[in-house]
Amino acid sequence: MKFPISVTLNGRPYRREVEPRQLLVHLIRDLGGVTGTKIGCDTSQCGACTVLLDGVAIKSCTALAVQADGTSITTIEGLAGDGQLHPLQEAFWNKHGLQCGYCTPGMILAAHELLRTNPQPSDDQIRHGLEGNMCRCTGYQNIIRAVREAAAAMRRKG
């Protein structure tokens, strides 16, 4: 069985016939050559596959492509606009909030979710807000610094 779906990925519309068992993360990576979304643990623990579905963070390894029918998906590639890095990307760069970089796309989108629901988090709230995302290089200190800086920058921008 194939099921017809339409999704918007980073602003571009797509129509596909998908197998019901296809995972959202595979659809995203196969659609338009955007492979920033990573498959890490594949068991919804590590957060490397985090994307925004209609603006809300989810783990795309634990969603079916058919469930995303009619939605707008944002991946790390869709976060920057008009050639300008998103304040979170800017802050992860400035604070070196990464080591190997594999967790970074998911980490930034999880941080995006945190700041959407809590624009002025304490360090403790940042740590809790990112608890579904793992950095196996253990580079957490700079990630916390980056999210703190991005939060301040986003508040300044309004």
Partner: peptide
């Protein structure tokens, strides 16, 4: 429960 992304679904 779980983490924020899991709680969203």
């Amino acid at each position: 429960i779980g983490d924020p992304a899991v709680r969203n679904r």
